[in-house]
Design a protein around this nucleic acid. Structure first.
Length: 410
RNA sequence: GCAGGGAUGGUGGAGCGGUCAAACACGGCAGACUGUAAAUCUGUUGGCUUAUGCCUACGGGGGUUCGAAUCCCUCUCCCUGCACCA
């Protein structure tokens, strides 16, 4: 499969400046993709674009990965309804390091270069910037952008000169990389289209040369229609300190049937044959949720590594009873204890009190109600009386409802 | 500043002297059915080792009363008019 076919099949096609996607199938290009260090980790929203970048690399194109040390200092106003707080410098420095680290992990084994746009902005003076770049940017275009219009309108929140100018920095990045590394293509998410295209424009005016943009659609949950990547608890992060491996795995496992088809293509590196075979089996027995399991395992493996993916997969099967034995073996206990609330039971603790301690019930009354409802399962056995005698020495896996768990040590 | 209306549990919103831990709806949680899903049905939804009982709660404080979410005074905040300002 050629790259353009691959991207089309996987659903990575949105808008592009290329007259035909086939332009990607010719000789290798050098392209760049960037992430601003507005947080200390990427989210699964960024991951979609990263996956696309991997396909570019696999088809022989040369990747330049940018961390936005300079752009992060200002903050991208696009799509935001209000001015954002500036981030402290030390926070940006930390975030930059974290994101660079994630680049190295996600693209492990692939050829790529990492750059920081702060490196070329730090020595650039304001007057120099205005004379060389500012002179070539038409105001009409900058003012015409939709979010600028919204922000400046009667009800809008207004916009500062700094955020308004953000696009110039990103445009200059492209120009700089074009000159310095012969970058002729920027890939980005659909939300970055406006910023990216400004660079194409700048290169055309200043270098009289052609450069291009390839944007991927934003991933949307088809069932809810919402922008993807957020849960009730917040964003799904790639950093396991922010979203634990278990939560990460669970997130993918719970993807609905309609979305899982898209996500297998977007978020795994499995080839067409493998995905089609998986989906074929899946459609015969949706209840088995093979597609979700493959998705969850593959994505977790990619982001967190094989051993963690294996561990969390096995722990999940213990928790949800797919693996025999309600009681824990040592390996599972280690994984689960890192993930679940762990409570130490004293001799006089009653079962309801332990449920409260473990955060599985908010009061003794509620705990008793759960037991009466048959919602409490200890080591795979339903509990019928508020009696702590069901606990065995060592680790006990306790389950309340369908997916609230804790480990009780005795 | 004057006049009028309002503030109730996670949310909306009834209640207007005892029968109020507070209708009803939504949301939450649990059970059944399922696929750790959706839909549906059932239960539950202030706390207390479980009680025809006690405690805490209807914006804050004070009062009337045997008894107050309900009546009175006062404070705080919100809304609606009018005035002031322009």
């Amino acid at each position: 499969m050629t790259l353009s076919e691959e991207l089309a099949w996987r659903g990575f096609v949105n808008q592009t400046t290329f007259p035909s996607p086939k332009a990607l199938d010719g000789k290798p290009l050098t392209f760049y993709w960037g992430v601003d260090p507005s947080a200390d980790s990427m989210t699964i929203g960024n991951l979609a674009a990263a996956m696309m970048v991997r396909h570019f690399i696999q088809h022989g194109h040369h990747a330049v990965l940018l961390v936005g040390g300079a752009t992060g200092l200002i903050g991208d106003p696009d799509g935001k309804s209000e001015e954002r707080e500036l981030k402290p410098l030390d926070e940006i420095a930390r975030n930059k390091a974290a994101i660079t680290e994630q680049y190295r992990r996600i693209f492990a084994g692939q050829p790529f270069a990492v750059v920081d746009n702060y490196d070329w902005f730090k020595g650039l003076g304001y007057l120099e910037f205005l004379r060389t770049v500012g002179k070539h940017v038409p105001m009409r275009q900058m003012l015409g952008r939709e979010f600028v219009q919204t922000r400046l309108s009667e009800e809008g929140a207004g916009i500062s000169y700094a955020e308004f100018s953000y696009v110039l920095i990103q445009a200059y990045d492209f120009l700089h990389l074009f000159r310095d590394k012969a970058v002729t293509l920027q890939v980005c998410g659909a939300d970055q289209w406006g910023n990216s295209i400004a660079g194409v424009e700048l290169i055309r005016r200043m270098e009289e040369a052609e450069a291009h943009v390839w944007s991927a659609p934003l991933v949307v949950n088809k069932t809810t229609g919402k922008k993807f990547g957020k849960t009730e608890a917040g964003a799904v992060w790639l950093d396991e300190q922010k979203t634990s491996v278990y939560q990460f795995y669970q997130f993918w496992l719970n993807v609905d049937d309609e979305s899982v088809v898209d996500f297998l293509k977007l978020y795994t590196l499995l080839d067409k044959a493998a995905i089609e075979q998986t989906l074929d089996t899946f459609h015969h027995d949706r209840g088995a949720r093979l597609a979700q399991q493959v998705l969850a395992y593959e994505v977790t493996k990619l982001v967190h590594g094989t051993s963690k993916a294996d561990a969390v997969r096995h722990a999940t099967s213990v928790l949800f009873g797919k693996t025999e034995a309600g009681s824990l073996n040592n390996a599972d206990a280690t994984v689960l204890k890192a993930e679940l609330p762990v409570v130490h039971a004293a001799a006089h603790d009653s079962l309801p009190a332990l449920l409260v301690k473990a955060g599985l019930a908010s009061s003794n009354t509620e705990a008793n109600r759960f037991i009466a409802d048959g919602a409490v399962v200890v080591n795979g056995h339903k509990v019928t009386a508020a009696d702590s005698a069901v606990l065995q020495p060592g680790d006990n896996l306790i389950k309340r409802g369908k997916n609230s768990f804790a480990v009780i040590e005795r």
